[in-house]
Write a protein that binds this DNA or RNA. Structure first.
Length: 851
RNA sequence: GCGGAUGUGGCGGAAUUGGCAGACGCGCAGGCUUCAGGUGCCUGUGGGCUUCGGCUCGUGGAGGUUCGACUCCUCUCAUCCGCACCA
């Protein structure tokens, strides 16, 4: 801590300016201001945890705040809001343990974290703060859910439409009509095999299950059929895929989404089953290998298995099916190494060559993908190959690789070849290359009504209900006669009732089910109904929060269309990469529905996405309580100040890189701020330093100033904050040593520093005689001409080795440089009397002489 | 197994995208200031050799392209992160 009275007292300075900004509402964003271009900078809003902020939060928040402050100085009208993603398990678990209402815990945690965030001096417009657990917020989450419920997806137009416009087939009874409509809603109930987590007492979405364990807590997850609410995200698979081309996101994140959607193009092929009236369709990406299909495999869960199994094999089949059903996802992953399965006794007919092929069941075929059945081509599919080897099934090669040796091994049935080649053993198609064969056989099948072109996605519908208390209640009623009806808009929000026990029943019902007077409802016509007792998953509130920031206090509608058109899309979204397929996919999905229904004007919500990397502990390990390597931001701020904290977070390395914390590194940037302070302020008096005065700046200083302005600006635009800070350090090292520090130069430097270390920048500007905030000062311009060096230094290489350096005038031409280089004594010595065969001049860098 | 990312001094990291490797910061060493510690200031700091002028090796490893490679190509190793039988 500084003892001198005019020293850099960061604690006082930071408090002073934070109060100033708050009182003046410095960072209030104005809606629909057409006099300036708009810019929307969004942070992934945090879960308000009892542990408070960790050092990972301020990393992204500082980066976005630097861009925000920079853009403001560049004349943009910037929207930079903050809020709370406050539904979630920790507050609920705490409630189960202590009986404290989650709302109370949440409120306390929010206040703690808001104080922490404010202490870092981020320029949020706090007037727009949102909280997903506030009924005034989740009213509109429920409202959007009703939009899903009251919409269907028009296949030809590839967009959602109001359910009233759904064409209903003629001749349906009233009941059938209802059923038909319910089956087309984008939010629907279904009895589906779900990921049930006994430890959490709830079901989870596919995206929340990692390797058979729950994403939160790492508890085992088993498969079990249950009645659940689903959102029809699969209808949007193609658009979610296509529109990725429009956004400026890291390629790695795009790829994760592409893989998660998992589009594959191929054909559906019809197989007849012997002694069975039903045909069976399979999906394949390799219709060209149809002649090599020597058996079929059905998923154990497939319903036709019962019908086709012969008495002789029934016992073995039943046993296998039971085993498969009992396996959890984790077991299934573990046992994936070896192929298991049993023969059903039934046969199918290969439509290409009318061969009889046996039908097996095996758990390597998934009920949830394609038709739950496959044609097995062991010669050209690794899994089928393994299976065929295990059970000694015939292997017929139908694709010949170009490579001679490979081709021989494939013919012998020793090698499984999955690449492209030429057709063999395929009747009239022999000799065709793979790509052409695919086309031809697909057409051939289509002409005979045996198949057609088909597309499949790995993406499944989104399992949208949870058996928890602390989530948005569904605005849904179940009537006595079995109808499902949505509440009307006037009845929102449907508030969470008070309960005595927060524990999930564990049977698949949420704690809400126990509250009789909430569950039971009498409708307007006097009939009885029950409320839906599931709640929405944690992701619901975060799917649209960026829209509520635009108009957070609106009681009449979710947001004003005019404001939406002004601010959207989000220009910059910064957050962790862990949300690649969860939040970021879900939010895009919701946005597309809102787009189809005309509530938003952009196809995609987030134009540019930047991921921040994880910050590790000082030991290079992931920070965790048990390792004891957690860094508390509060301590850093108390010891070095918010500006040092911000600066260090950015100086550590590239924003998106994983990097370890270092307290000594914090001291390093703190020293830089001290130096900058002393460059401008006299430590003894607290007045402007004597060296800072009206004076003409020297040539070197002017050049460095202009270079620094350019470098810092360019680096901010490219999210290279570490090198921007390095450039400012170079500048301070230079100017701090000058006896005279021209005021005009110092002024510009403070402006450049401001987005990074706003508190000290404000204070220094005050010392320089300003009374207003730096926040809206124009970013300084640099002069291209003044950046240029008068003289340039080039290294001279002889046969690739540097022998000398020459200094020439910046405007010297190649010939002059050559002559100067050849005139160097050291160069002459190195050439040892030989002729220069070739001389290469790379203007500001190097001269290369080859003898 | 498949896919992606990364690999540069004692440490975090720079390198205008094929042109002087190691900017900036940390750490360390020496000096000044100081009763002392700390702060602050100055100098030095990739390895090896050196007659102190230099020489030489050096960006995970092995090849290659080029006057010239951290950067491009081929192979390979290590670490981290996704996905995990998707037909």
């Amino acid at each position: 801590m500084n003892v001198k009275k005019g020293g850099y007292n960061f604690n006082a300075v930071e408090k002073k300016w934070q109060r100033f900004w708050e009182e003046r509402k410095t960072f209030k964003a104005n809606d629909c201001d057409d006099s300036r271009p708009k810019y929307y900078v969004l942070d992934m809003f945090p879960y308000p945890s009892a542990a408070g902020l960790h050092v990972g939060h301020p990393e992204g928040y500082t980066a976005s705040d630097i861009v925000t402050r920079y853009k403001r100085m560049k004349g943009f009208n910037v929207l930079h809001p903050m809020g709370w993603d406050a539904f979630g398990l920790p507050a609920e678990q705490y409630a189960v343990e202590t009986g404290t209402h989650p709302a109370e815990t949440t409120q306390r945690n929010i206040e703690g974290m808001r104080r922490q965030i404010e202490s870092l001096g981020f320029s949020y417009d706090w007037n727009r703060e949102v909280n997903t657990t506030d009924p005034n917020y989740y009213k509109w989450t429920q409202w959007i859910f009703l939009k899903f419920f009251n919409s269907y997806f028009d296949e030809t137009e590839q967009k959602a439409k109001p359910i009233e416009q759904l064409p209903i087939p003629e001749g349906l009874s009233e009941n059938e009509k209802c059923r038909y409509i319910d089956d087309h809603r984008l939010a629907y109930e279904a009895e589906v095999p779900v990921n049930w987590c006994p430890a959490l007492g709830t079901v989870l979405a596919n995206e929340e299950v990692i390797g058979g364990l729950s994403e939160r807590g790492g508890h085992p997850v088993i498969r079990r059929p249950m009645r659940q609410w689903m959102l029809r995200i699969t209808e949007y698979a193609e658009r979610l895929l296509e529109d990725l081309a429009e956004v400026d996101w890291p390629e790695s994140i795009k790829k994760l989404q592409i893989d998660w959607i998992g589009k594959s193009v191929g054909a559906e092929v019809k197989f007849e089953i012997e002694n069975c009236a039903r045909d069976l369709w399979v999906f394949t990406t390799r219709p060209d290998t149809l002649f090599g299909a020597t058996y079929m495999v059905f998923a154990p869960e497939l319903d036709v298995v019962d019908m086709i199994t012969t008495d002789e094999h029934r016992e073995a089949v039943e046993k296998y099916r039971e085993q498969a059903a009992r396996k959890s996802d984790l077991d299934r992953t573990d046992l994936a190494k070896e192929k298991t399965g049993v023969f059903t006794g039934a046969y199918a007919i290969n439509p290409a060559n009318n061969e009889r092929i046996p039908i097996w069941i095996s758990d390597y075929v998934l009920i949830s993908y394609g038709t739950g059945a496959i044609m097995a081509v062991p010669a050209h599919d690794e899994r089928d190959f393994e299976f065929a080897k295990e059970f000694e099934l015939p292997i017929i090669p139908v694709v010949e690789p170009d490579d001679r040796q490979q081709a021989e091994s494939v013919r012998q049935g020793e090698l499984c070849f999955v690449g492209d080649g030429r057709a063999i053993n395929s009747g009239q198609f022999n000799g065709l290359p793979t790509a052409e064969f695919k086309e031809r056989i697909t057409n051939w099948l289509a002409e005979r009504s045996l198949g057609q072109k088909a597309v499949n996605y790995k993406l499944r519908d989104w399992l949208f209900s949870r058996q928890r208390y602390w989530g948005e209640p569904f605005p849904i009623l179940h009537t006595k006669d079995g109808r499902v009806i949505g509440l009307s808009e006037e009845d929102l929000p449907l508030e969470l009732p008070v309960v005595e026990n927060y524990k999930p029943a564990g049977t698949g019902e949420s704690p809400l089910a126990n509250i009789d007077d909430w569950v039971n409802v009498t409708l307007a016509d006097g009939s009885k109904a029950k409320r839906e007792t599931n709640t929405m998953p944690q992701w619901a509130g975060s799917c649209w929060y960026y829209l509520r920031y635009l108009d957070p206090d609106n009681n009449r509608r979710s947001w004003d269309p005019e404001k939406e058109q002004y601010w959207m899309p989000v220009d910059l979204y910064i957050g962790g990469a862990e949300h690649a397929v969860l939040h970021l996919l879900y939010a895009r999905f919701w946005h597309k529905l809102l787009y189809d229904l005309g509530y938003v004007s952009t196809k995609e919500p987030f134009k540019k996405l930047v991921n921040q990397g994880m910050i590790l502990g000082e030991d290079g390990q992931k920070m965790s309580k048990s390792r004891g390597n957690v860094i508390n931001p509060d301590k850093v701020i108390t010891g070095y100040g918010a500006d040092s904290m911000r600066l260090y977070e950015m100086f550590m390395g590239p924003l998106e890189a994983i990097k370890p914390w270092s307290m000594q590194g914090v001291e390093g940037v703190h020293r830089f701020l001290q130096k900058a302070w002393r460059m401008i302020v006299d430590e003894d008096t607290g007045e402007l330093a004597e060296a800072v005065k009206e004076a003409q700046a020297g040539e070197a200083t002017v050049r460095l100033l202009n270079q620094t302005i350019k470098k810092v600006g360019d680096d901010i635009e490219n999210f290279r904050f570490n090198t921007a800070i390095s450039a400012m350090m170079i500048f301070v090292n230079h100017l701090g040593q000058r006896e005279i520090r021209p005021k005009s130069v110092v002024e510009k430097f403070v402006l450049v520093l401001a987005p990074f270390a706003p508190h000290i920048a404000e204070e220094l500007r005050e010392k320089l005689g300003h009374t207003d905030t730096v926040a809206y000062e124009p970013w300084p311009e640099y002069d291209k001409e003044l950046i240029k060096e008068k003289e340039i230094e080039l290294a001279v290489q002889v046969n690739g080795k540097i022998k000398d350096r020459i200094v020439v005038a910046a405007e010297a031409d190649e010939e002059q440089i050559k002559q100067k280089a050849l005139g160097s004594k050291k160069v002459i010595a190195a050439m040892a009397g030989k002729e220069a065969r070739k001389i290469i001049v790379v203007k500001p860098r190097i001269v290369s002489i080859i003898t």
